[in-house]
Computed example of a mutant assay.
Amino acid sequence: MASYMNKFVGAAYPVHSPIENILPKPEPTGVDLYSRFFLAGALCCSITHGALTPVDVVKTRIQLEPTVYNKGMIGGFRQIIQNEGPAALLTGFGPTFAGYFLQGGFKFGGYELFKKLIVDQIGMEKAREYRMPVYLGASALAEFFADIALCPLEATRIRLVSQPTFANGLLGGFARIAREEGLLGFYAGFGPILFKQVPYNMAKFATMEVVLEKALHFTNRTKESLSGSEATAYNLGSGLIAGFAAAIISQPADTLLSKINKTKALPGETTGGRLVKFSKELGITGLFTGLTTRLVMVGTITAFQFAIYGGIKKSLNATKSTEISK
C-alpha cells in the first residue's frame, strides 16, 4: 500500500529539480506532434463552424427553398425568427460541432502529415520548387479522410435544418437516419461532399500558403520574427482571402449537397444521376444561389480558423510543421 501511494503521489506531485525549469522542454515529434496538430485543427474548426451555425441555417434554407427565402441573408434571418423563433437558428448545432471537430482534426492534422510525407519522398529542394502541387496534393488527401468522418454528421445536420420536425437534435436525427436508411443514408452525399470539400480544401490551404508567403515577402518578414499579435493578424488576413477563393470554387457542389441530403433518392436513382438532374434544374444561377451569404460565412470561418489554429499550435508547443515556402 505504501509503495502504491508513493507511486501515486510521486506521479501526481513530482518534485522537479530547479534546473528543469531553466532548460527548454524538448519539442514534440512523431505521433505526439501530429496529435497536437489534430487537436488544434479539431478545436479551431468546431469552434468556428459551431459559432456560425445561424448563418449556415440561413444559407441552407436559401439553397433549398430559394422561392421562399428570397430576401438575402438579413431577410432570411428575419423570416426564420418570425416563423420559427430564434432557437431555429441553432438547428443542427450538435452535428455541426461534432462533425467539424472530427473533420477539422483530420483536415489540419492530415495536411501537416501528408505535406511532410510528400517532402520526405521528393526532398526539400524539389518540394520548394514544386510547392503548389505539394500544397494541393497534401490538402486533397487530408480532405478525403476528413470527409469520411464528416459525412454522417453533415447528412444529419442538413436533414435537421431542411426538415425542422425530422428529429430533436443530433442523437435523434442520427438514430432515425440509421434506423430508416442505414449506412447508405449517411453516405448518400459522400460523392457530392468530396466534390465540394476536396476542391474547397485545396483552394483553402494553397491560397493561404501563397498569400501568407507573399505578404511576408512584401513586408520583409519571416514567420519566426512575428510576435503573437502579428502572427494572428497575418493569419486572419491570409485566411480571409483563402476563404473567399474556397467559397467560390466549391459553391455549386455545396448547393448540390444540400439538395441531395434534403430528400431520399427515388428507386433506381444513382448519386451521379441525381447530380445531373439537380444541375439541370438549377442552372448556373441556381448553383450559385446563396453565394453572398456563403462568402461571408466561409471567409469569416477560414480567417478565424487559421488564426485560432496558429494560436493553439503555439500554446501546445507544436510549431515545427514542415515549411516549404521560399
Rank of each mutant, 00 (worst) to 15 (best):
S225D: 04
T271A: 05
L266V: 10
D254C: 06
T263V: 12
P267A: 05
P252D: 04
A265C: 00
S250F: 01
T222K: 09
G228V: 13
T219W: 11
E269G: 08
S238M: 03
A245I: 04
K259N: 05
L216R: 13
L226E: 07
A265L: 14
E230R: 06
I249F: 07
K223S: 04
S238N: 07
L236T: 06
A265H: 08
G272R: 13
R274V: 08
A231F: 01
S225E: 13
I260T: 04
G243L: 10
Y234I: 10
T263Q: 13
T270V: 09
G273N: 12
V276K: 15
K223H: 08
G243I: 08
G243S: 02
A265F: 15
K262Y: 12
T270R: 07
T232V: 07
G243D: 06
A215Y: 01
T219A: 15
K259S: 06
S279H: 13
A247G: 02
L266T: 10
A253Q: 01
S229F: 08
F278K: 09
N220L: 10
G228Q: 11
I249A: 09
S225A: 03
S250L: 05
L275H: 03
L240G: 00
Y234G: 06
L266Q: 03
T222F: 05
G239V: 13
S258N: 11
S258Q: 10
D254Q: 14
H217A: 15
L256M: 08
